[in-house]
Design a protein around this nucleic acid. Structure first.
Lengths: 246, 246
DNA sequence: CGCAGGGTTGAGCGCTCTCAATATAAGTGG
DNA sequence: CCACTTATATTGAGAGCGCTCAACCCTGCG
């Protein structure tokens, strides 16, 4: 088990799994109709929160798996290191999303690092496992979440395997936009938490290429960029980029 | 539910989940020590086999999810189609491996197509779900299998995102070799079931590039290729390719 | 104010793609 | 079994996208 840098016991019972409020957890929302006892048990899955400062890791590749983390606030990247030390960013995650599923059944396969001061809810896996035996709805959701992660990864494989640089960045921006909306933020005006190098790693491009593409998109009136501040000016234009047969 | 082209009721109870014999299923092997009743229940998960001829699909993207499939014999590819009809191959699967996990909780996300006449075991998901509630060891294995799929996808993301063409093909060959060994085949002499185009799609390369790389590897004494027949001559040479700093 | 990390932009190169021709294998029907 | 068709592979020549190397700029911070 990792050392917890700051544990905040939950004062009031959390109903996030049902109401998605405490942890802003959108991945694990359960359908209504659970009996009171089940609800109470589910509420206790979140036994602690943990603050993670910018640059710190929630878990590290190779570390023993013990829990899944629900992002309460903040922004994270997950990444792998190969033998030569090259980093591959495998994803960016924001409030309401889950981290650490790749570790189930052994040790974490990647590393999760906060890109800004953040807070996560710790969901001990042993608890989830045990409870999902008793509560079919929770079991369903857990499996669905794992499957969704697989589907997400397939999307990235498609992006990396068959798109040109332009299309990759457009897809990236549209995806971020969609997720920010669901979090209640603006869909067209946001602050990138990651560097050009991290975007490049995620998209299979070099940081200079990413930078050049941002500039090109701006010149074409698709977006406005100023360092990490991005405004989408023409969503349909970005979507049209993806429709052009290569 | 998909129409089953040919159902073969299992005469003798199958113990594949424990012995890995009937379905050659290596993904779901369970630890010893289960009680007899549990064993019997697990045996009944495989209620049918299905023959899949070359070119046929086991399931199609968008089809309603009903079961996971264990490959008993044969060879498959899974792939996605984007809006413009571009195919992205997301994986190749052989005997003892599982197909269809991306559909859990909804509908299949990709399509699985047999690259040679094959046979799969049908594992109805409702049954697995129900049983894994009663048998913790099965639940563990199920989750581990899902997590392993995520880890596998991350490996592909790393390949697509940060390797050059040479390294991708070398990785691909070494991976195939390793998996053939586990299936009892030669590690150094095998028949590729997929086309250059399918390899290319999987590796994010064009078919001509794949073909050229095969020729180059042959010229360098790393392999012998003749159409779909490949012999690995110098495994360490291939591994060395991956160790070279980019 | 100076320093460090991150971002932008330019010039030139090279890996991979595109287009095209040819070769080989695998079917298919007579 | 052989001529025909079709799918798959190989190889070449040339182009272009994204990379490399390098200089410069911006911003935050001690």
């Amino acid at each position: 088990m990792h050392a917890l840098t700051a544990i905040h016991p939950i004062a009031a019972p959390s109903k996030f799994l049902v109401t998605c409020s405490s942890c802003n957890l959108r991945e694990l929302c359960l359908p209504a109709g659970l009996c009171p006892e089940d609800l109470e048990r589910i509420e206790n899955v979140v036994y602690a929160r943990r603050r993670v400062k910018r640059g710190e890791s929630v878990f590290k590749a190779g570390g023993e798996f013990s829990a899944v983390y629900a992002i309460r606030s903040g922004f994270f990247k997950t990444s792998l290191l190969d033998r030569e030390g090259r980093e591959q960013v495998t994803g960016f995650f924001m409030g309401g999303e889950l981290l650490g599923m790749d570790g189930i059944g052994g040790s974490y396969h990647g590393t999760a690092i906060a890109l800004e001061d953040s807070e996560v809810c710790i969901l001990p896996y042993a608890l989830i496992e045990e409870m999902s035996r008793d509560i079919p709805a929770l079991q369903r959701q857990l499996h669905a979440v794992l499957a969704r992660e697989i589907v997400r990864d397939h999307g990235v494989m498609m992006l990396l395997g068959s798109m040109r640089a332009e299309e990759r960045l457009a897809t990236f921006l549209l995806n971020l936009s969609r997720r920010f909306v669901r979090r209640g933020y603006s869909s067209s005006d946001f602050h990138l938490r990651m560097t050009r190098e991290e975007i490049g790693s995620y998209l299979g491009l070099k940081l200079e290429t990413v930078s050049r593409l941002f500039s090109a998109f701006q010149k074409d009136g698709l977006i406005d960029v100023q360092q990490k501040h991005v405004q989408i000016r023409d969503i349909e234009g970005l979507e049209r980029l993806l429709a052009i047969k290569h």
